[in-house]
Lab assay of single mutants.
Amino acid sequence: ISTPTHWSKLDPKTMKVNDLRKELESRALSSKGLKSQLIARLTKQLKVEE
């Protein structure tokens, strides 16, 4: 399991699906679903981290 990238360095809308999945997995979140779902899930988590 990798260390999550700091929230300020991430822009989920421009990330590739593989990168989105890695970030979600490093935060112990589900990495299953469509790209739009991955973006929404990661965006929501990054707002919590701010």
Rank of each mutant, 00 (worst) to 15 (best):
I1G: 05
I1S: 04
I1V: 09
I1Y: 07
I1C: 04
I1M: 09
S2P: 07
S2D: 14
S2L: 06
S2E: 10
S2R: 12
S2K: 15
T3K: 14
T3E: 13
T3D: 08
T3V: 12
T3I: 09
T3N: 12
P4H: 07
P4E: 11
P4Q: 09
P4I: 13
P4G: 15
P4Y: 13
P4T: 12
T5C: 04
T5P: 04
T5N: 04
T5M: 11
T5I: 05
H6W: 08
H6R: 10
H6M: 12
H6V: 13
H6Y: 12
H6F: 12
W7P: 10
W7Y: 11
W7G: 07
W7A: 10
W7E: 08
S8F: 05
S8H: 10
S8Q: 04
S8A: 10
K9P: 03
K9W: 06
K9C: 06
K9V: 09
K9F: 05
L10F: 03
L10I: 07
L10A: 04
L10R: 03
L10E: 02
L10C: 05
L10N: 03
D11I: 14
D11A: 14
D11H: 14
D11P: 02
D11Q: 14
P12V: 08
P12F: 02
K13S: 08
K13F: 05
K13D: 08
K13Y: 06
T14G: 12
T14R: 15
T14D: 11
T14H: 15
T14P: 01
T14Q: 12
T14N: 14
M15F: 00
M15I: 02
M15E: 00
M15N: 00
M15Q: 02
M15S: 02
M15L: 07
M15V: 02
M15K: 02
M15Y: 00
M15H: 00
K16N: 14
K16W: 04
K16E: 11
K16D: 11
K16C: 12
K16S: 13
K16R: 07
V17R: 08
V17A: 10
V17L: 13
V17P: 07
V17C: 15
V17H: 08
N18Y: 12
N18E: 14
N18S: 15
N18A: 14
N18D: 12
N18G: 13
N18V: 14
D19Y: 12
D19M: 14
D19I: 12
L20G: 01
L20K: 01
L20Y: 02
L20F: 02
L20M: 09
R21M: 14
R21F: 04
R21E: 03
R21T: 08
K22Q: 08
K22E: 06
K22A: 08
K22V: 05
K22T: 08
K22C: 08
K22R: 12
K22I: 11
E23F: 02
E23R: 00
E23P: 01
E23W: 02
E23V: 00
E23C: 02
L24Q: 01
L24G: 00
L24E: 02
L24A: 01
L24H: 02
L24K: 01
L24V: 02
L24D: 01
L24I: 03
E25L: 07
E25N: 03
E25A: 04
E25P: 00
E25V: 08
E25Q: 10
E25M: 10
E25C: 02
E25G: 08
S26E: 13
S26G: 15
S26V: 15
S26T: 15
S26L: 15
S26Y: 14
S26A: 15
R27N: 01
R27W: 00
R27P: 01
R27S: 01
R27G: 02
R27D: 02
A28E: 14
A28C: 14
A28M: 14
A28W: 11
A28H: 09
A28Y: 15
L29I: 14
L29N: 03
L29E: 04
L29C: 09
L29R: 06
S30G: 12
S30W: 05
S30K: 14
S30P: 14
S30N: 15
S30E: 11
S30L: 07
S31F: 10
S31H: 13
S31K: 09
S31P: 11
S31I: 14
S31M: 11
K32C: 07
K32G: 09
K32W: 10
K32P: 01
K32R: 10
K32S: 08
K32L: 11
K32Q: 10
G33N: 00
G33S: 00
G33A: 01
G33P: 00
G33Y: 00
G33I: 00
G33F: 00
G33H: 00
G33T: 00
G33E: 01
L34F: 07
L34N: 08
L34M: 11
L34A: 09
K35D: 06
K35T: 05
K35V: 05
K35S: 05
S36N: 08
S36T: 12
S36R: 09
S36G: 06
S36Q: 09
S36P: 13
Q37W: 04
Q37M: 12
Q37F: 06
Q37L: 07
Q37D: 10
Q37T: 10
L38R: 03
L38K: 05
L38W: 02
L38T: 02
L38E: 04
L38P: 02
L38V: 04
L38N: 02
I39C: 11
I39P: 04
I39Y: 05
I39R: 13
I39W: 03
I39K: 13
A40P: 09
A40Q: 12
A40G: 13
A40Y: 15
A40T: 09
R41N: 06
R41P: 02
R41K: 07
R41A: 04
R41M: 04
R41W: 01
R41T: 06
R41H: 04
R41D: 04
L42E: 03
L42C: 01
L42R: 02
L42F: 03
L42A: 02
L42Y: 01
T43P: 02
T43G: 08
T43L: 12
T43Y: 05
T43Q: 11
T43R: 15
K44I: 05
K44D: 08
K44S: 07
K44L: 05
K44H: 06
K44M: 04
K44V: 05
Q45L: 04
Q45R: 13
Q45M: 06
Q45V: 06
Q45W: 06
Q45C: 12
L46Y: 03
L46S: 02
L46F: 04
L46N: 02
L46P: 01
L46K: 04
L46W: 01
L46C: 07
K47F: 03
K47C: 05
K47R: 10
K47W: 05
K47P: 01
K47M: 05
K47V: 07
K47T: 09
K47Q: 07
K47L: 08
K47H: 06
V48R: 12
V48S: 11
V48C: 09
V48M: 10
V48H: 09
E49M: 00
E49H: 01
E49F: 01
E49L: 00
E49K: 00
E49S: 01
E50M: 02
E50I: 14
E50Y: 12
E50V: 06
E50Q: 11
E50G: 06
E50R: 05
